[in-house]
Amino acid sequence: MSARDDILSAVRLATGGGAALGRSAVARAFDERLAKPTANLIPERGKGTPAELLVRFIAESEAAAATVARVAGRSGIPAAVADYLAAHGLPRRVRAAPALKDVPWPEGIGIAVDYGKADADTPVGLSCAVSGIAETGTLVLPSGPATPTTLNYLPDVHIVVLETASIVGSYEDAWSRFREEAAGGDFMPRTVNWITGPSRSADIELILLLGVHGPRRLHILLLDGQDA
């Protein structure tokens, strides 16, 4: 017998015989759940009006050591990035997600911008999140042709664009959005990254240090409108 058959029959033996135990009922219930996803208990902090969720999202992401700036619209992104880099004396070289190609970078802003996945020495990554989850201040970043994953991890500085309208309450709400968009098809990209604050470790004497392998800084640009 193959290892697969061996293991599955051992599981069936241990759980009392598989099909005899009404697996078809379990299968039916599971398929129903997939067709009409049902959440388990969602804590109160994952619920609220859009205004409440916005406040909570900002508070929670700041508690996780991220910083947040409000921006009027997409055309405000370059100035917000320039301000942030200047304020912290960071390199003015940005690798952005191709999804942000429509952002107009004015001549003379003094920032070199190109697009694509990150290299080992990319100092600043600029990417965009599809949702922000208020309950823990978590950003949701799916991979895709226009949204390379490495931008989220290789650079020392990570700046993320998030529309205020994309803030949801709970993890479950974030999954609902994926499902709605896929309209019944397969909705999982290669990877979905949930990011809450910058990279950290307490491995040396339990002292909290930021920027271990991932970014040392996580800065969120909250876009209040489609454009200014």
Partner: peptide, 24 residues
């Protein structure tokens, strides 16, 4: 585990690189 609400990174990985993906 660590007394955090959630860890900094939680990743859902589904299959290898897709057509058109720049990394993975």
């Amino acid at each position: 585990a660590t007394g955090q609400d959630i860890t900094a990174y939680t990743t859902f990985a589904t299959g290898p690189k897709r057509p058109g993906d720049p990394d993975g």
